[in-house]
Design a protein around this nucleic acid. Structure first.
Lengths: 228, 228
DNA sequence: GTCTATATCATGATAGAC
DNA sequence: GTCTATCATGATATAGAC
C-alpha cells in the first residue's frame, strides 16, 4: 500500500521533469522547479533517483524502452512476412519514424511532450545525454540500417547512412518544433486546427523522408566515388 | 589605437563565447568560462555587452547579418537573371542552404563552429534566443518562401512551408552533428577524411533536400485537401 | 577600458529528525 | 519515505580603485 504512494511520487517527479526538460532544457531546469511542479519535497529526487543526471536518464528510459522494443517488434514482423525478400523502403521508414510519431497520440507513452523532448535532446550539448542516447539507440539503429541496405542494394551504404541521418534531423526538428515552428510557418495555421495538424504531420513528413531517401545520388565534384 | 585593443577584447569574447556556446549550450556555459578562455577579465563581458543574454545575441548577429545579406543578394541576382520567370527549385535551395553551408569553409565568418552553434540553437529551449532568431530570419525567410511558391505553383503553399521546415531540420541536424553523428555513422568515416566529408556533405544534403521538396504529395486519410 | 573585490542569489546535494 | 535545515559551490552582476 505504502509502495503505491511511493510509485506515485516517482511518477510525478518523472512527469514533471519530462515537461520541464522539454520546455527549458536540462541545464535550464532546476531540481527546485521539478519538485515544485510535482508537489514533492526537494530531497525526493535524490532519494528516488540519486542525482539529476540519473533522473534525466530515467525520464528517457521510461519511454525509450517501449519505443525501441516496439520498433524491433514491427521490424521482426515485417521481415517474417517478407520471408527473406527485401522490405520496401516505405515500410522501413514507417517502422522507424512512424512508430515514433504515433507515440504523439499516446498520452500514456508521453505523447507530444516526450516527442518534443526527444527531438530537442538529440542535439543537446550535454555530453552524457548524447552518450546515453547513442547507447540506447544503437541496437535498433543497426537493425534498421541493415534493412535499408538490403532494400536499396544499388545505393552505396555510406549514402544510406547519411540519408538516415538527414531523416532523423528532419523528424527531430519537426517534432521539437514549438515556437521554432514560427520561423517558417506564421500564417499557414489558418484553416487547420491542431489535431488536424498533428494527424497530417505524419503523411507529410513520410512523403518528404521517402523523397529524400530515394533522391538521385549526389554528384561529387572530384572523381572518386563514395565508399560502399 | 586604444580602440583597436578594445575591439580585440570584444572579438576575443565573441570568439570564445561562440565556441563555448556551441560545445556546452547557452545555459551550460558560464561567464567565467568565457572570460577565462578569452583571457580577459570577468567584468569585461558586462562592460562590453551588458549581460549574458546580450552577448548571446551579439554572437549571432555578427554572423547572421552577413549570412542573410548574402542570401538576399544571391536571390536578387538569380531573380534579375531570370527576368520574371520562376527560378528552379534547386537554385532556391542552393541560395538558402548552400549559402549557409559554404560558411563552413570560411573561417572568417565563423566556419564550422558557428554553423554547429546555429544548428543546435534552432532547437534550443531558451525562449529569448528562439524569439531573437525568428526575428532575424523573418525577412529572408519570406522572400525565399515566395520564390518557392512561384517555382512550384502546382504544390499547395502549406506543403511548401512544411517542406521548408523539414529542410531546415535536416540541415540543422546535419551541421549540428558532432557526436550526435555517431548515432548513425560510427564506421563509415573509414575512407573519407574530414575535409572530404565536409566537401561532400553539401551535394549529399542538397540531393536529399531536393528529393524531399519534390516528393509526391502526401495523401491524407480524410477527404479534405490541404489548404492553399 | 581594465581590474579586484564583493554583493546577492540559486544551484545540487546531504545529514539527520521524524 | 518524507521532511527541514544547511552546506559548499558556482552563478550573474556591479561598485569603485586604477
Amino acid at each position: 500500500m505504502a509502495e503505491i504512494r511511493t510509485n506515485d511520487t516517482r511518477e510525478r517527479i518523472l512527469d514533471a521533469a519530462e515537461r520541464l526538460f522539454m520546455t527549458h532544457g536540462y541545464e535550464g531546469t532546476s531540481m527546485r522547479q521539478i519538485t515544485g511542479e510535482a508537489s514533492v519535497n526537494l530531497a525526493a529526487v535524490n532519494y528516488h533517483f540519486g542525482s539529476k543526471e540519473a533522473l534525466m536518464q530515467e525520464v528517457f528510459r521510461r519511454r525509450l524502452d517501449w519505443l525501441n522494443e516496439e520498433r524491433m517488434r514491427v521490424l521482426d514482423e515485417m521481415e517474417a512476412e517478407a520471408a527473406g525478400k527485401p522490405l520496401k523502403p516505405s515500410q522501413i521508414v514507417d517502422g522507424f519514424f512512424g512508430t515514433l510519431l504515433r507515440m504523439a497520440g499516446d498520452e500514456k507513452r508521453g505523447g507530444v511532450t516526450f516527442l518534443r523532448l526527444l527531438g530537442r535532446t538529440l542535439t543537446e550539448p550535454s555530453e552524457f545525454i548524447r552518450a546515453f542516447l547513442a547507447h540506447e539507440y544503437q541496437t535498433v539503429m543497426d537493425r534498421y540500417k541493415e534493412a535499408l541496405f538490403k532494400a536499396l542494394p544499388e545505393v552505396p551504404k555510406a549514402e544510406i547512412v547519411w540519408r538516415f541521418h538527414f531523416m532523423l534531423g528532419a523528424t527531430s526538428y519537426a517534432i521539437a518544433g514549438t515556437d521554432a515552428l514560427r520561423l517558417v510557418t506564421d500564417w499557414q495555421i489558418e484553416d487547420e486546427d491542431s489535431t488536424d495538424r498533428l494527424d497530417r504531420l505524419v503523411p507529410r513528413l513520410m512523403s518528404f523522408l521517402l523523397g529524400g531517401l530515394r533522391a538521385p545520388l549526389p554528384q561529387f565534384s572530384d572523381a572518386a566515388a563514395a565508399s560502399n
